[in-house]
Computed example of a mutant assay.
Amino acid sequence: MYRLLMTQVFRRIDPELAHHLGFGLIRLVAALPGIGRLLRSRLAPTDPALRVHALGLDLPGPLGLAAGFDKDALGPDALTALGFGFVEVGTVTADPQPGNQRPRLFRLPADRALVNRMGFNNAGAAAASQRLRARPAGAAPVGVNIGKTKVVPEREAVSDYVASARQLADVAGYLVVNVSSPNTPGLRNLQAVEHLRPLLTAVRGALHRPGQRRVPLLVKIAPDLADPDVDAVADLALELGLDGIIATNTTIRRDGLRSPEAEVAALGAGGLSGSPLADRSLEVLRRLRARVGDRLVLVGVGGIETAEDAWERIQAGATLVQAYTGFIYGGPFWPRKINRGLLRLARESGHATLAEAIASSRARQD
């Protein structure tokens, strides 16, 4: 049914408008009396064999929704009701900003991919913090992804990230420093170790609140980093005592696509996500695992469409996996399908639980 809607209805609607309509419908349905509870009972991962402990959090499953879908923390609980074990909201900036000029989101159906140049459109850190603070007690953990405000010059980036971190420290299950989006001028320059070290050090300091829960800190990197730069970021993360790395963000590359070259070129600049990203994201994940071992939590994201894709990331060293484009193309029942598939694959490999399968994978790699 969803595939029919995707091919016959949504494809005729501007992708950004379709996103707002679809997300609005998810929130509306989940808010109806009794419906949210019913959705959660039918779709959310409830089998204890799927549970994962990572980043100091007990998660009902390893599959999370990547940043970019819920930029303003409008509906993380509606999304977890569909089957995501956790949701990462954002990217959030210290100040509200409209993002780049529309159109800024495009589909490549032949590649099951998206191109976006959204530009961190969001209502700002204070608004996100207020929404997250209003969630009911006991709600599923939410990660928060923070980025640089566009108008802030690169030399003031550290203070800008710190401002966001301070606003969000007490409501974030974990915090992610995003220095890898291609859609904010100069942002990727911050991945260079000489810029990244003071940035991460300052954010880590902003999250330190005596007597309060320690907020896990991760960094999200681009698939377009050269291998030596991936190693350098991994080494830095270990040096600074970070909790994890998310691999990877979108790519600026356009090679190997099925879509006609002229069609792709007409879309212009932006980050490519979805199936074409899978191979490089997996390469980066494996490289990180070889570099850091089990000293950091690795989150695999990029081109995950099937349970087998997610399982491959876990076997390659990821403790958690995330998706965005796979969800867009797969529909509202896609998270449940992935969770069931992961449980099946874990049991076919001779393990009673997914956590046991993850531990076994780590032991083999070590």
Rank of each mutant, 00 (worst) to 15 (best):
L272Y: 01
D95K: 05
F84P: 07
T149G: 11
V292Q: 12
L267M: 08
Q322M: 14
V89E: 01
A44Y: 00
P223W: 14
A157E: 02
Q315D: 11
Q8G: 14
L175I: 09
G270S: 06
A232R: 01
A232D: 01
A323L: 09
H19S: 03
P136E: 09
T325C: 07
P276G: 14
V215Y: 11
R364I: 08
V284Q: 13
A352H: 15
P210A: 14
D243M: 07
L17P: 00
A49G: 06
P60N: 07
S349M: 13
L225V: 13
A363E: 15
G90N: 00
R197T: 00
D170Q: 15
Y2F: 06
Y2K: 03
I314Q: 15
T91M: 01
N116Q: 03
E263H: 04
L225E: 09
G36V: 01
L38W: 13
E283H: 14
L242M: 07
L196T: 00
R117E: 01
L74D: 04
F106N: 03
D279C: 08
F106K: 05
L65I: 03
I314L: 15
M6T: 02
F333L: 15
R204L: 03
A30Y: 12
L82D: 07
V321C: 15
A262L: 00
L200Y: 08
A269S: 14
Q8A: 12
Y324E: 10
R344S: 13
S360C: 05
A81V: 07
V292G: 08
A357Q: 02
Q8H: 10
F69Q: 01
V152C: 07
I26C: 10
V264H: 09
A127T: 04
G256P: 10
L114V: 10
I314G: 14
R364T: 03
E88K: 06
G271K: 02
L38R: 13
A318D: 12
